[in-house]
Design a binder for these strands. Structure first.
Length: 481
RNA sequence: GCCCGGGUGGCCGAGUGGCUAGGCGGCGGCCUGCAGAGCCGCUUUACAGGGGUUCGAAUCCCCUCCCGGGCUCCA
């Protein structure tokens, strides 16, 4: 079996993927801070890791996939206020009410995008005690120090600091924001912050009441749920520095084991008119808004269309292109199912057709093995569509074997890429029966040559989103979105 | 300022030295009562600009222009 190759941010090169302990794969992906609605930028990252998860599973790896929920400890730079606390004030909710609201909203978004649920989805607030045990260990080992109820990581105690981001140590002395004066070094970062009286989200600790720093949670949760060394750790490119850099420092100092993570994987930004989609720029589209307009498959095909490390520019014009793509892909698959339901000619799959389909599937695997080149994989998917359509259209009726081959190929590709299979009779059998009766009636008019009435029926159905198409084997219809 | 990525045909986007990316859109053909869908063909001597290396460069080197990102807020 050809092994996949993947780009490792740590080495800045594409490497052959060899997990530490095959066939087991330990994968950790940084989840969202649940303070607000998730947007399409989040979707790009999590859809990519979903494909990574699906593909490695398809190859036979046993993947343990952990994606956390950050529900505390993520400080805003300007105010030094926890983002959850800030969000709670904004919406006049208790902090944990806000967390519940957006955590469940996020889960729902992920399900609707057909993103598989990770093995474990731990929450930071469920690991407070684990965090301070780890912080205590770092203090004992001389990697952290306490000042007035705050605990900081001592960056100078870890000589490899900067390895992931490539930031040089002398650069770190500079700073944009006035650093907390009690820090020994401006680059030191908080492991535990003291909470002022009246602060809503706080826990008691060996250093007084407070709350954890943002970076420590991912070290703790990944080690707790996956062990001291991971195969894959990923997230958006924005997390390379400081979040992941700090995670490496903490984790390796804590466990004494190196490397903490074998492959660091980072996903490029979703942009709008060239600029990064973000809350602060106000150019974001929430996943819910996007799903009100487009299907999950539209969105997934769009995201698949560029390489995961490259930026991808969002616009409605481009989305419309992918609506067309999706209709073509789903249409081809639906025709296979329909033709199969009607019954194909007896016989095995044709040799040539069979070879064509197999080589397309090989092409998809080869593309994914090559640093998860999903644009090339989707080009192969279009090839499958074309090949299958041509077979369905040909004068020689497709055999049962052909149809089964085509259906299996689509099912495999859909599963790996996480595309939802179109359903032939989804919402309500009765709707379908009504449409069929109408079409039967229309056939009668057509036979009589009464095309005026036949076209009226077709147009009326079109107005309510039912596209009627006449084919040599009778009329078919599909529901438009 | 320092450090990373980028600039590919009307549009989106693969491609790291020779071999058709793919899609969307447009045009034409086949099919069809018409439409739609599908298939075939064309649009495609595209690679920011200028030098250089090479038998050969979108791909390697140098310079210039432009864009985005990171430098302790972000997936």
């Amino acid at each position: 079996m050809q092994k996949p190759r993947i780009y490792n941010t740590l080495t800045r090169s594409v490497e052959v993927f060899e997990p530490l302990n095959p066939p087991e794969v330990k994968m950790y992906v940084c989840g969202p801070t649940v303070q607000d609605l998730a947007h399409l930028g989040h979707a790009k990252t999590y859809i990519f890791f979903d494909i990574l998860y699906r593909y490695l599973t398809h190859l036979g790896y046993r993947v343990r996939y952990v994606r956390n929920i950050t529900d505390v400890g993520h400080l805003r730079e300007d105010t030094q206020v926890d983002r959850i606390v800030a969000g709670a004030e904004r919406e006049r909710l208790a902090p944990m009410e806000l967390v519940d609201k957006y955590m469940f909203s996020f889960f729902s978004d992920m399900d609707r995008l057909n993103i598989k649920r990770p093995t474990v989805q731990p929450r930071a607030t469920m690991h407070i005690v684990d965090m301070w045990e780890a912080i205590s260990r770092l203090i004992e080992k001389g990697h952290a120090y306490v000042v007035d109820g705050n605990v900081y990581f001592d960056v100078s105690s870890y000589e490899r600091y900067g390895q992931l981001s490539g930031i040089r140590r002398e650069e770190l002395i500079k700073h944009r924001v006035e650093p907390a004066p009690e820090k020994r070094n401006p680059a030191d970062f908080a492991l535990w912050k003291r909470a002022e009286s009246g602060y809503l989200l706080k826990w008691s600790s060996p250093w007084g009441e407070g709350f954890p720093g943002w970076h420590i949670e991912c070290s703790i949760m990944s080690i707790k749920h996956l062990g001291e060394q991971l195969d894959i750790h990923g997230g958006g490119q924005d997390l390379i520095f400081p979040h992941h850099e700090n995670e490496i420092a903490q984790s390796e100092c804590m466990t004494g084991k190196r490397p903490f993570v074998k492959y660091w994987v980072h996903v490029g930004y979703l942009t709008v008119r060239g600029e990064r989609m973000s809350k602060s720029l106000g150019n974001f589209v929430s996943i819910k808004d996007a799903l009100a307009r487009y299907t999950a498959n539209d969105i997934r095909l769009f995201i698949l269309s560029s390489h995961y490390r490259a930026p991808l520019d969002y616009s409605e014009d481009v989305m419309e292109q992918f609506v067309e793509v999706r209709e073509r892909v789903e249409g081809s698959y639906a025709r296979v199912l329909e033709t199969r339901a009607e019954g194909g000619a007896a016989g095995e799959a044709g040799l040539e057709f069979s070879h064509q389909v197999d080589s397309i599937l090989e092409g998809i695997k080869a593309s994914l093995n090559d640093d998860f080149n999903t644009p090339r994989a989707s080009a192969h998917l279009m090839e499958l569509v074309k090949t299958v359509n041509a077979r369905l259209d040909s004068a020689r009726r497709p055999t049962e074997g052909d149809l089964e081959k085509a259906q299996q190929a689509f099912a495999t590709v859909f599963e790996i890429l996480g595309l939802r299979q179109p359903e032939l009779s989804g919402e309500g059998e009765r709707l379908y029966l009504v449409i069929e009766r109408l079409l039967r009636l229309r056939e009668e008019f057509r036979r009589e040559g009464n095309f005026r009435v036949a076209d009226m029926i077709r147009e009326a159905l079109r107005e309510v989103g039912v596209q009627v198409e006449d084919t040599s084997s009778g009329p078919r219809f599909r529901l438009l979105r």
